[in-house]
Structures are given as structure tokens and as C-alpha cells.
Lab assay of single mutants.
Amino acid sequence: MATKAVCVLKGDGPVQGIINFEQKESNGPVKVWGSIKGLTEGLHGFHVHEFGDNTAGCTSAGPHFNPLSRKHGGPKDEERHVGDLGNVTADKDGVADVSIEDSVISLSGDHCIIGRTLVVHEKADDLGKGGNEESTKTGNAGSRLACGVIGIAQ
């Protein structure tokens, strides 16, 4: 089992970053940390998408990683996509320092995120509470600013 993974985020604009993942036990939580720069100040949706395909930019990554066919939600919700990591918060300089621990994603097994795409979005994720159909699919997080395929790390 891989215990570490990394993702280099890039987009068409100024947004870029490096996100690290570490899972010490196969059924334990995954620590997610790193930094994203070039964002507007505020909240930005942060999700693992189904495919590791960036051939047409971030759009070819498909929908959120959702092997259990659930509705979109927040990272602490029972009803959520596996890939729903909530929001990252950018400061006035456009930098989001990421520090998350998640017990639904994994670096092995059915919820493995390796080979899938991590995406940072234009807007805040409403965590499935926006009151419309799009909220239950995407959290109304808007366009995909930057993305990268999650790969095994040393």
C-alpha cells in the first residue's frame, strides 16, 4: 500500500500549488496538507474528481469521485461524495494553506484517490446545502481553477 501521495495543481491562470497526502494505516485517516497560491481571497471548493484525465484541462477530470452514488455534502457529513473535501481558505495575498484530515478518502482500496484528479474551484462549496439540484452534485463551487493528478510519492 502506498502511504504517501502528492498532487501538483496547475491551471490556465495564476492558480498553482502542491498538496501532499499521507496515510499511516490502511483504514486510518489521510492527512492532506500543502499550499495553493494565486486564488482570490475567501473560500474555494476542494474536491477529488473521478478521473485522472487532464487532456482537456480540468474539465476532463469528470464529476466528483463518488463510488457510493451519494449526494454532495461537506467533509463531516454522512451523506457526501468520497471526493468531497470541503473548502480551502485563501488569505488576502491569495494563498491557501491547506491542513485537512479526512477519514473517507484513502490511498488504497475502494476509496483510493491515487490516479484521480484534485481540483480547486472558483467559488465556495455550499456543502450540499444550497437548496438546488446543482448543490447536491457540485456544491455550486463554480469553474475549475486548477487541477492535477494525484500520484504515489516516496
Score class of each variant (00 low, 15 high):
Ser99Trp: 08
Val15Lys: 07
Pro63Val: 05
Gly45Leu: 00
Phe46Ala: 11
Gly142Lys: 13
Asp97Phe: 11
Lys24Cys: 12
Pro14Gly: 08
Gly11Thr: 10
Ala146Val: 04
Arg116Asp: 00
Asp93Gln: 12
Lys123Gly: 10
Ala90Glu: 06
Cys112Arg: 13
Glu79Phe: 15
Lys76Asn: 07
Gly11Val: 12
Val98Ser: 05
Lys24Tyr: 08
Ile100Gln: 15
Lys123Glu: 12
Glu101Phe: 15
Lys76Gly: 13
Gly28Ser: 04
Asp97Leu: 10
Asn66Met: 13
Asp97Met: 13
Val15Gln: 10
Val6Leu: 11
Ala146Met: 04
Asn66Leu: 04
Ser143Val: 09
Ser108Arg: 12
His44Val: 04
Ser143Gln: 04
Val32Asn: 01
Ser35Asn: 09
Leu68Tyr: 14
Asn27His: 15
Phe65Trp: 09
Phe21Val: 04
Val82Asn: 15
Val119Asn: 03
Gly130Ile: 09
Arg70Phe: 11
Pro29Cys: 15
His44Gly: 06
Gly42Tyr: 03
Val8Phe: 05
Glu134Arg: 04
Arg144Val: 00
Asp126Tyr: 00
Gly128Lys: 00
His111Phe: 11
Cys147Trp: 02
Asp12Phe: 06
Pro75Glu: 10
Ala141Leu: 02
Leu43Phe: 08
Glu134Tyr: 04
Ser103Asp: 09
Val8Ile: 14
His81Asp: 03
Asn140Ser: 07
Gly139Gln: 03
Ala5Gly: 13
His44Asp: 03
Asn140Thr: 13
Val120Tyr: 04
Lys123Trp: 15
Gly94Ala: 08
Leu118Cys: 15
Val6Glu: 07
Glu78Asn: 11
Ala90Trp: 05
Thr3Met: 06
Phe51Gln: 03
Val6Lys: 12
Glu101Ser: 11
Gly13His: 14
Leu85Cys: 13
Leu68Arg: 05
Ser108Lys: 11
Gly83Gln: 00
Glu79Arg: 12
Lys71Gln: 11
Ala96Gly: 05
Lys71Ala: 12
Asp93Leu: 12
Val8Pro: 03
Pro29His: 06
Ala61Phe: 02
Lys76Val: 11
Gly131Glu: 12
Ala153Asp: 15
Asn132Leu: 10
Asp110Leu: 06
Cys147Pro: 00
Gly13Phe: 09
Ser35Lys: 14
Pro14Ala: 05
Ala2Ile: 07
Ile18Gln: 13
Ile114Val: 11
Pro63Ala: 07
Gln23Leu: 15
Glu101Val: 08
Asp97His: 06
Glu22His: 09
Val98Ile: 03
Ile113Asp: 03
Ser99Gly: 15
Val6Met: 07
Gly142His: 07
Gly45Lys: 03
Glu79Cys: 13
His49Val: 00
Leu9Asn: 02
His47Ile: 01
Ser26Gly: 10
Pro75Arg: 12
Ile114Lys: 08
Val119Cys: 00
Phe46Trp: 06
Lys123Arg: 14
Ala5Ile: 04
His47Gln: 03
Glu122His: 07
Thr136Trp: 07
His47Cys: 02
Asp93Met: 08
Ile18Leu: 06
Gly142Ser: 10
Asp91Arg: 05
Asp84Met: 02
Phe21Leu: 07
Leu85Ile: 14
Phe65Ser: 02
Gly139Glu: 02
Gly73Met: 04
Phe46Asn: 04
Leu9Val: 12
Pro67Phe: 06
Glu133Gly: 13
Ser69Tyr: 08
Asp97Gly: 14
Cys112Ile: 13
Leu39Pro: 04
Gly131Asp: 05
Asp84Ser: 02
Gln23Asp: 05
Pro75Met: 12
Gly38Arg: 06
Val88Gln: 11
Val104Lys: 14
Asp102Gln: 08
Val15Ile: 11
Ser143Ala: 06
Val8Glu: 14
Ser26Cys: 11
Arg80Val: 00
Gly142Arg: 09
Gln23Trp: 08
Ser60Gly: 04
Ser26Lys: 15
Ser99Phe: 15
Asp91Trp: 10
Gly128Ala: 06
Val98Ala: 09
Lys137Asp: 01
Gln16Ala: 14
Ala90Cys: 08
Ser26Asn: 07
Ala146Trp: 04
Asp102Ile: 11
Gly131His: 04
Gly148Ala: 12
Gly94Asn: 10
Thr117Gln: 04
Arg144Phe: 02
Gly62Trp: 01
Gly86Tyr: 02
Ser35Pro: 10
Pro67Gly: 05
Gly128Asn: 04
Ile105Ser: 09
Gly139Pro: 00
Val48Asn: 01
Ala56Leu: 11
Val149Asn: 04
Glu78Thr: 12
Pro67His: 03
Gly45Arg: 02
Val82Tyr: 15
Gly38Pro: 08
Lys76Trp: 13
Pro67Leu: 04
Trp33Gly: 12
Arg144Gly: 02
Asn54Arg: 09
Gly139Tyr: 00
Leu39Ile: 06
Lys92Phe: 14
Glu22Gln: 08
Phe51Leu: 05
Gly34Lys: 03
Ala124Lys: 13
Gly11Ser: 13
Glu22Lys: 12
Leu145Cys: 07
His111Pro: 09
Val32Gly: 12
Leu9Lys: 00
Asp126Ser: 04
Ser143Ile: 14
Ile18Met: 07
Asp110His: 10
Gly139Met: 01
Val48Phe: 14
Asn27Gly: 09
Leu68Ala: 05
Ser69Trp: 13
Gly13Ile: 07
Ser99Ile: 13
Lys123Cys: 11
Val15Arg: 11
Val48Tyr: 01
Ser143Trp: 07
Leu43Ile: 13
Ser135Gln: 01
Gly83Ile: 02
Thr3Gln: 06
Leu39Gln: 14
His111Gln: 13
Lys37Pro: 07
Glu122Ile: 07
Gly62Ala: 00
Ala90Gln: 06
Asn87Gly: 03
Glu41Asn: 13
Gly139His: 04
Val119Gly: 00
Gln16Tyr: 09
His121Val: 01
Thr55Val: 05
Val88Ala: 15
Trp33Ser: 11
Asn20Glu: 15
Asp126His: 14
Val119Gln: 02
Ser108Met: 04
Asn140Asp: 09
Ile36Trp: 03
Gly34Cys: 06
Lys24Ser: 07
Ser60Asp: 01
Ser99Met: 06
Lys10Pro: 07
Thr136Glu: 11
Ala146Leu: 03
His49Pro: 00
Gly86Met: 04
Asn132Trp: 08
Glu78Trp: 06
Gln16Gly: 14
Ser143Met: 14
Phe65Cys: 06
Ala2Asp: 04
Glu122Cys: 10
Pro75Asp: 06
Asp77Thr: 14
Asn27Met: 08
Glu134Ser: 06
Val15Thr: 11
Leu145Val: 12
Lys123Asn: 08
Lys92Val: 06
Lys4Asp: 06
Arg70Ile: 14
Thr40Gly: 06
Gly42Thr: 05
Cys58Glu: 00
Thr55Ile: 03
Ala96Met: 03
Val15Pro: 08
Ala90Pro: 07
Lys31Val: 09
Ala153Val: 07
His47Glu: 03
Gly57Ser: 15
Gly109Glu: 08
Gly13Lys: 09
Leu68Cys: 13
